[in-house]
Structures are given as C-alpha cells and as structure tokens.
Design a protein around this nucleic acid. Sequence first.
DNA 1: TCCATTTCTTACCTGCTGGTGACTACAGCA
DNA 2: TGCTGTAGTCACCAGCAGGTAAGAAATGGA
Lengths: 126, 126
Amino acid sequence: MENTPSTSHSDIPGVDALVNELIGRVADKWTLLVLEALEEHGESRFSQLARNVPGISQKMLTQTLRQMERDGFVHRTVHPVIPPHVDYRLTPLGHSLGEAFCGVWHWAEQHLDDVETARTAFDTRD
Amino acid sequence: MENTPSTSHSDIPGVDALVNELIGRVADKWTLLVLEALEEHGESRFSQLARNVPGISQKMLTQTLRQMERDGFVHRTVHPVIPPHVDYRLTPLGHSLGEAFCGVWHWAEQHLDDVETARTAFDTRD
DNA sequence: TCCATTTCTTACCTGCTGGTGACTACAGCA
DNA sequence: TGCTGTAGTCACCAGCAGGTAAGAAATGGA
C-alpha cells in the first residue's frame, strides 16, 4: 500500500495545501455534528437543529451554518413570515461530503475497541 | 446511500458518543498531517517528521506522537544509544485509519473547485 | 575539557475559540 | 397594552491550544 498515497494526492504542488485547508475546515467538530443531524433528520429549522445537535450553542450553530452555507453544503430557505421561519437542508455537495465521512465513521465504529485496548495497554504498562 | 447512516451508527445508544469522541481526537489537524507524513515517507525519526510536517512545533509533534502511540496508531522504537535515536512507524491500525481518511482526501480533491465556486458565489451575491 | 548532537520535558505567555446572556424585530393574541 | 415566539446579533469573558525558549542527559570528537 506504499505506492498509492503519493500518486493519489500530490499531482500538482499547491493543491496539497488547499486540500489541507479544506480538510481542516470540514473536519470541524460542529460541522460534522450538524452534517450528521441534517443527514439523519432531513430539512430542519434552526431551533430543531439546536435541539438535535447535542451541546451546541446558538452562536456556534449560526456560525457553523453560515460557514456550511458559504461552502455550499447547506441550502438556507427563509420564509418571510413573523415570527421568522428558516429551513436548512443539505445540498448534493453536502450529501457527498457526508458520504465521504461515512468511511471514517465506519472505521471509528469498527476500531473503537482496538483503540480502547491500545489505550489501556499504553496506560497500564511500565 | 441514504439508508445506511441511521442504521450504521446508532445501533447501541452511547456508542455514538464514543465514536464522536474518537472522531474528534482523530480529526485533529496535526494527527492528520503526521499520519500523512508517515504514510508518505514510511518509518521516520523525530527530526525527520519535524521536517516533513510543515509548520509543526516540537511540542505539538511530541504531544501528537504520544497521543497516536497511546491510541495504537504508531509504534515507537527507541534505540538506546547516545545521542538518542527513535523511530516511528505506522501500525496496521494506523494504516487502516489512513485508508479511511483516504475517502475524505479524495472528496476534497474532487470537490475543491465546487467549494471554491460556492464560496465566491456566496461572497459576491447580495 | 568542552562542545555538539538528538529527543524530549517544562515553564511561561499569547491569541483564539467558543460559551453566556442581553438585545432586536414584528405580528398575533389575550 | 404587553407578552410570546423565532432567528438571529453583539459584547464580554474564561479557558485552553499551541508557540517559544531553555534545560537535561550522555557520549564521542576536537
């Protein structure tokens, strides 16, 4: 498996840095949780998301949603009524991101025990 | 692919939280970069890694490596000589993590332009 | 004798992330 | 008239992530 990594993501120098930056933005804790909530519950209102994402504050929810909207992951629909009504739903791009992270979720599930074991082994040795 | 997420990671309540915590640890910026450096260059010494991971400080490299060692991603070989000689290499578990993230790297490469486009569209509108 | 080498630790300090709580706008309803 | 519900914004503040710099430890070479 030592042949693939260098060819898969280093074709053009400079892309690496951009990809890194993108990963950094996308691998954000709150982004992942909001992404998951939207995958699970489908189109949601702001207050629904606040309830479905455990522990998120209003500020971070707003901020995360703005960022995801800017990156093209969520679509924001404002119904101009009083009181305000805003719906958020994943775009196809957002969905594809969710699927890409599916592999990592999968890995985490499968290897949760391995990591746990490694940790206790590390902690109890020496 | 819309059927898997809810069934794939919510079988047992509580696992979700653990998986979340694991993802949070693993999606760390420095962890990903060190992982990549080790995938690319194979077994490396401390100072080699410091050179291969752009912008990391000694402190963060030590800290990240300790964490990855504890989680069972890297194996640390100490050659008891003076001056010290320490080698780091990925364990099979570390490799599997690298492969899991491969999908995300891939996604990032493929959709880099889409995100870029979405951003400029977002910034230039209204 | 003294310095360079290599891997790490520790102390200190700064800047940013993110939480809290108050505030806005507007219409309907009691 | 004033309270309520929704989706925010803003100002303030604490805690922590992470950078810098110094030191330790032992040995071979000048």
